Amino acid sequence: MHRANDYYGHSAVLARYCGVPGEQPPRIHGYLQHGWNIGDGMAADHEYVAGVPLFLWSERVRRRAWSMGRRETYVVGAPWAYLLRLRPEPPAAPAREGTIWYPFHGWEGQHVRGDHARLIDRIKHTETGPVTVCLYWQEFWTADVRRRYERAGFRVICHGYRGNAHQAGDPEFLDRQLTELRQHRRVASNRLSSAVWYGILAGCEPAVYGDPMVLENEDPTHGGQARIRRQWSGLHGEQIDIAQAHAAAVNELGADRMAPPAELRQLFRWTRAAARVRENAL
């Protein structure tokens, strides 16, 4: 249905979990929330067909969607939670070190304005170990931005391409992100975001500090950054209580609301695709 379902390889991860292999996952019948937000789970810049099912990450988001008149909603948890189920951390994993830092980024339709030099100074003042800076693909391919972080002595990476209205996202995006997070002791950003929640659930110590920067024409609906800092005040700072952060991440990513493969196949209308796979295996 909606191309955003393929962003970050979300549909590919869920297809793996559901036992529906193939280079191209089946189309999800409905809209899958593709990023953490404080509204109804839907991206403000996308159009939606009334009555189409919404597959949301958490009960908090479902309640907000219901209050806005969106009735056919299902809490299924974030694809990230399913990836962790698919790839449990090895018991003898190498010791983690350093910090992976995610500067707040824009997207193709909105750009971020902020002082990268000041943010770099804050990172160098705060972090004691090696730092990996992960940039969104736009910033990564903007030489001036990327080189600022490289000249600061940071390792600079990009997890891949998110996807857009005409092209699916990189199906290995989340796998690369998980591999990187599990190599680092800390995860940090200048805004509370999906990447921070992912890092917490993957076992990183979180931090949210520094200039939050400004997104062009940022939508203040649902309260914006002021509400985020107010509602999740305990998740902001250079040192955060790990137990509190983990409990919040479980709630926000719906890690306690995951559905079994058979239920997801039914919700997504993937039952026929799964049946074809079984037939081909005989």
Rank of each mutant, 00 (worst) to 15 (best):
H2C: 10
H2V: 06
R3K: 15
A4K: 06
Y8W: 06
S11N: 14
S11I: 02
A12P: 02
L14S: 09
V20E: 03
V20Q: 04
P21K: 02
R27S: 15
I28S: 03
G30I: 05
H34E: 06
G35W: 08
W36R: 05
D40Q: 06
G41E: 08
A43L: 02
H46I: 04
H46C: 14
E47Y: 00
E47S: 12
G51V: 05
F55G: 01
L56Q: 04
R60H: 14
V61T: 15
A65F: 03
W66N: 10
G69L: 06
R71G: 02
A78S: 15
P79D: 07
Y82P: 09
Y82I: 11
L84Q: 15
R85Y: 09
E89D: 12
P90L: 08
P90V: 04
P90W: 05
A93H: 09
A95L: 11
W101C: 13
W101E: 05
P103T: 07
G106F: 10
E108K: 12
E108R: 14
V112A: 08
R113Y: 09
R113Q: 13
D115K: 07
A117Q: 13
L119S: 09
I120W: 11
D121E: 13
E127S: 10
T128H: 10
G129R: 12
T132H: 04
Q138E: 13
E139N: 15
A143Q: 10
D144N: 05
V145D: 06
R151N: 14
R151M: 11
G153R: 10
Y161F: 13
A165L: 10
H166I: 03
A168G: 11
G169C: 05
D170G: 10
E172G: 14
E172I: 03
F173C: 02
L174D: 01
R176F: 01
E180I: 08
L181C: 00
H184A: 15
R185D: 00
A188S: 06
N190H: 09
R191D: 01
V196F: 00
Y198G: 01
G199V: 02
G199E: 04
I200N: 08
L201R: 12
L201G: 06
A202Y: 02
G203R: 13
C204T: 03
E205C: 06
A207K: 02
Y209K: 12
D211F: 01
V214A: 03
L215P: 07
E216H: 09
G223R: 04
A226M: 03
I228L: 13
I228D: 04
R229F: 00
G237S: 02
G237Y: 01
E238W: 00
E238T: 15
I240R: 01
D241G: 02
I242Y: 10
A243R: 09
Q244L: 05
A247Q: 12
A248G: 01
V250N: 02
N251T: 12
N251E: 15
E252P: 03
R257S: 09
A259E: 14
P260S: 01
P260N: 02
A262P: 11
A262Q: 15
Q266I: 01
Q266G: 04
R269E: 10
W270H: 05
W270M: 08
R272W: 01
A273D: 14
A281E: 15
L282C: 07
L282V: 04
